[in-house]
Write a protein that binds this DNA or RNA. Structure first.
Lengths: 187, 187
DNA sequence: TTAATGATGCCACCTTTGTGAAGTAAATCT
DNA sequence: AGATTTACTTCACAAAGGTGGCATCATTAA
């Protein structure tokens, strides 16, 4: 649980009581490669913290598997389009490397917001930062060729290319596996 | 100011005092078409509410003007990648139709978060909703042809095509003006 | 260990989109 | 109103990326 509180400190330090309140509504999940942590069409009621392992959020568009994004150690995993709307998600979370994950019950967490405004503030800041990342990603997608997007990934997040099958990387970049292979071939 | 509080009600109703506190740090701006409400490379310290008019966020990539998104009546305008990080923004806000805008001083607003947790909650919810919209937009960009993206825009946000010059729509869709013209030609 | 499956790379061919150039229409400015 | 700029469209050509097929190598399962 310590890794989680260390992570929180970067956003908003918590009192001991607040940490305990979060610990009380959390549990540790270990899950094997290729399993779905959460399946498609379930409503997201859990916020996850990746202690160890790799995961991705994916969905199907016209029958094709598309990766929305990847998650590595020390990051928060959530399908926000379900978590914040209460609607079922069309997306699933899949484990790509045997993982150890902390699961926080979001229904209870949101109740804690009423008692501990420091917790509400913490998660406000966490999701503000995630929002900024997402806005920046749109910029990357809007006017760059596949090759430029690949090279950017190579520099900014080499983890992805070392720990994740290329077929998932391709759809993440918005291209087919063939195009990705072609681009990598340019060397 | 009333339009703003009406808008807030959809997210988190405020007490009269909280409304007054926000009114005290806000001002009304009227600004003409084609003017920049905020220029590139300024750090964003204002959250805007569009009462009347149209605006866009844009930036330059390799010397080319790219539109990130549009804003119409009854929406919050902010360059979050600057607002939430304190860094200067590479983006500007430009007015596309004579506008009447409410400007909220964000430095003072963030201070109000300490006194009025209802205000912190309100803006948490506003930006959570904006975050969800942004995540959904990535989905639209990841695996659709330019023609599909155009048709989706035609259905979901016809305002854009009726009130905004096509050259701005093109870069918003991630294509050139020539491609957009070609697609529209298919009729 | 062998079979089966999955991941990757590569080829030929075709479709979509970008580029540069040019023309027309509409808006804006004295 | 006339001049100038801006918006939009079109064309011919080039480049990028998708499709279907197939070969190879690595991983997993029996």
């Amino acid at each position: 649980m310590d890794a989680l509180f260390q992570y929180f400190k970067k956003f908003n330090p918590l009192s001991k009581e607040a940490e305990k309140a979060i610990a009380d509504i959390s549990s540790i999940v270990t899950i094997k490669k290729n399993k779905d942590l959460q399946p498609i069409s379930h409503t997201c009621k859990t916020i996850y913290f990746m202690k160890k392992g790799v995961a991705r959020i994916y969905y199907f568009k016209d029958g094709i598997d598309i990766t929305e994004r990847f998650f590595f150690e020390n990051s928060i995993i959530a399908r926000v389009e379900s978590l914040f709307t209460g609607k079922p998600s069309r997306k699933a979370i899949q484990i790509l490397e045997d993982a150890e994950i902390i699961a926080i019950n979001s229904t209870q967490l949101f109740k804690l917001y009423n008692t501990y405004s420091e917790i509400e503030r913490l998660f406000r800041k966490i999701f503000e930062a995630a929002y900024v990342e997402t806005v920046n990603r749109i910029e990357g997608m809007q006017f760059h060729s596949a090759e430029e997007r690949y090279n950017a990934l190579l520099i900014e997040d080499p983890n992805v290319l070392m720990r994740v099958p290329l077929k998932y990387v391709a759809s993440f970049l918005g291209i087919t596996q063939v195009s990705l292979s072609r681009i990598r071939g340019y060397r």
